[in-house]
Design a protein around this nucleic acid. Sequence first.
RNA 1: GCGCCGGUAGCUCAGCUGGAUAGAGUACUAGACUACGAAUCUAGUGGUCGGAGGUUCGACUCCUUCCCGGCGCACCA
Length: 548
Amino acid sequence: MIQTAKIQIATLLNPLTQLAAPDLQKVLERPKQFEHGHLAFPVFALAKNLKKAPPQISNELAIKIEELIKVGAVPYLEKVEAAGGFLNFTFKNSYLQDVFFLAVSKENIGYSNLGENKTVVIDYASPNVAKPMHVGHLRAAMVGQAIRNLAASQGYNVIGVNHLGDWGSQFGKLAWAYQEWGSEYDFTVKPIDSLLKLYVRFHDEAEKNPEIEHLGAATFKKLEDGDLEIRKIWQKIVEDSLKDYDRLLNGLLKIKHDAILGESFYTDKMESAVSLLKEKNLLKESEGAQVVFFDEKENMPPCIIKKSDGASIYATRDLATAIYRHDVMKADELLYVVGQDQSLHFKQVFRVLELAGFEWANTCHHISFGLYRFEEGKMSTRKGRVILFEDVITDAIALVEKMITEKNPNLENRELVAKQVAIGAVIFNDLVNDRVKNVLFDWDRILNMEGDSGPYVQYTTVRCKSILRKYGKPAPTKASIELSSEEERKLLFQLLQFEDILAGAYKQYRPNILAQYLLEVCGSFSHFYHKCRILGESSEVESSRIAL
RNA sequence: GCGCCGGUAGCUCAGCUGGAUAGAGUACUAGACUACGAAUCUAGUGGUCGGAGGUUCGACUCCUUCCCGGCGCACCA
């Protein structure tokens, strides 16, 4: 795509500037204004060595290249212009068109093989068993899935894991409550609702009768010790919860995992990690707990590996998990799509891995994202300030259905369209902004259907497809004439950036780069669509525009 | 107190890792449906890029410092 053109310019400039072609490729940039051309070379870097003013350098280069254009040595160039310290290149339409139609004739347009033969393990959307997912999980799920898709576009072998929160003392309480009152609840429709009720009831009862706290704890001990009956109940709770998550994640949002390996999976893998730390002499006793201290310069509290009662903790499990992902899953890159409130935890875990001598520790990355917030403060289950994942989706669908009734009462497949548009809006709204920023939860914003939104992208796509449908023939794979109007050239040039955009979005783990690009492409398409008639033009113009 | 992240138009946000005159959407104003479907498009109004220093040819972008907001700071996850 645009790389092809960059290589051309780099090889052209190489003998004229004494700079290496790869370095030139790196500094060549897209001018901010379309009128400035397709590629710009900032000559400032040459100024020091040549001891000349940048405008003089660019002028001299422009003159030399103009000569080459005149004698036909650079048939791909339309013109070159010096503008201050910039050298602006404009390609011939025909050349860009050739590059473009060649690129899109291949499979998987815009994909690269940067990640070939490499495996990336991505941890995202890991819910806690028996608890409903809230908008925070929604965010983690969408960002994770987007990064997963981006990784796939770069040729990586991707393993998306659901690191299910399925272990801990709360499961003793739940299992006990299930034994005691389970028969009073329905677990067939929305099992998580019933599980949550059980959990709440346990706590209510525990306030009146503290005795049952101990019963809960004792039940967890039984679970850990492998009591078959309790284990069976635990398994059912996990399976029921998974059904609900699958309905929401995969069923509604097409968010998929390749592996479901919950915390319970690592219970027997922690000891080897702990003994390794012991061998390396990293483990110290402090206040009864086993911890790893960090260098003073790191300015981090110690990482607790074993609590004073000997039990494992969050960090212990994450160490075992990371080692497993690297050793068994053969991960070359380990990504954790988790909220920014856990930055310190991951910093500690990654550092402990490094101290333990795992040179691959630097392939671990915490892909943090900002949190949903309310005007009144942090989202909190206890204060009742929590918006459920499912409510966001169902409310969005209801709203879109209402809009369809107003705008397009005769639409046949109203329910399907409402679902597609609503979910598109929710997903796009979340991915369009930089993931590190906190988001103020606002229904109006999340359900925005106009302007820069998911539905705008969908709308544009649908306009496009509608034309192709009405064209009635298979679309030609390349334009037969030169696409010369400004709108056509802009759109084509925009599309040429796709490959770079995908690669950059993955490299920085930022889906919003792609989302912003899509908005720009849609804008360019809209201009083209309103300015250039397609169907019913002369057959050459028609087929060329169809190809575009 | 210490650490991490943010502060760009009235509002919500981009700004492609240091480049040219800081851009969108929204809101507001004025226009375009007998038109490839108007959830669209065209034009206009709107900025001391939190403040102050610094680095250099060049800073929204990097450094220092201060202010404001969010999050975190050993036995929850």
